[in-house]
């Protein structure tokens, strides 16, 4: 299995308070890696470093390396705009832009300079199909994205991310506000997508990690407690903390 992202001795602090302590971790290509842990464990911080969205936070200091295909993305000289076009991100809350479904998905491609409507339509259709949303919205692509249900909006956000044709997709608790049926649809889409993408799924829901991920990492208080293949983590964890968390003894 190829390694896509290498995280080495990564430490992060917010205004002097440590959020991550010396994390070393490999993310494998074409797999879903699940990050789990209680609130404040640092799992969301870690994914916002991968596409450097952390730059929008105040008072952050980080140290260490995150290498994507060998290139350290924490290097200040990295072109963050180009980086973010390669790495899609879906947030905890569905965040459609206030415009039509079509324009939402075409937003990224248009930024890349694609203006031909035939090309754009092809990208929009393809992205919506991959996010399992096309059949529900194909007759109303020009209507406002704000009129979709929460679950549909979140799949729209996934489709919008796919339209960038990224190689990595980061999902920050994408199902936290969704009902079980919408959650199942997202999970189904993710299992299909891992053939072409490297996916990191942050979730509070250990069952979701168990169902969907190939590898799982357990974070606690800014430390990586355990990492391994998901079946092994869930059946035979080597750390007491991991076992307690999975069994719901704390969280």
């Amino acid at each position: 299995m190829d390694i896509k992202i290498q995280i080495r001795q990564l430490s992060v602090s917010y205004n002097g308070t440590p959020a991550l302590r010396s994390i070393t971790l490999d993310i494998y290509k074409n797999c879903i890696t699940g990050f789990m842990g209680p609130a404040g464990s640092g799992k969301s911080t870690l994914i916002t470093l991968i596409n450097r969205m952390i730059d929008f936070e105040e008072g952050v200091r980080y140290d260490g390396e995150i290498r994507i295909d060998g290139i350290n993305v924490l290097d200040p000289a990295v072109d963050v705009v180009a980086l973010r076009r390669r790495i899609g991100m879906v947030f905890a809350v569905p965040l459609p832009l206030p415009r039509s479904i079509f324009d939402n998905i075409a937003y990224g491609p248009r930024l890349k300079g694609i203006t031909n409507m035939t090309d754009l339509y092809a990208i929009v259709e393809d992205s919506l199909k991959k996010a399992f949303l096309f059949d529900e919205v194909k007759d109303r692509l020009m209507t406002s994205a704000m009129k979709l249900s929460g679950g549909q909006q979140q799949r729209l956000c996934l489709a919008r991310t796919l339209a960038l044709q990224p190689d990595i997709i980061l999902l920050d608790e994408p199902c936290s506000g969704l009902d079980p049926i919408s959650t199942a649809k997202i999970e189904e889409a993710l299992s299909e997508l891992k053939k072409d993408y490297t996916i990191i799924l942050v979730s509070n829901n250990t069952k979701q990690i168990a169902r969907t991920s190939d590898y799982a990492a357990f974070f606690y208080m800014g430390e990586l407690i355990e990492f391994g293949e998901t079946p092994r983590i869930f059946t035979n964890p080597s750390q007491k903390k991991t076992e307690d968390y999975i069994q719901g003894k704390f969280g």
Partner: peptide, 15 residues
């Protein structure tokens, strides 16, 4: 949040 989304999709500050 709308600004954050736009940046995450690879938009510059001006875009």
């Amino acid at each position: 949040s709308l600004r954050i989304v736009s940046h995450s999709l690879g938009a510059t500050l001006w875009e």
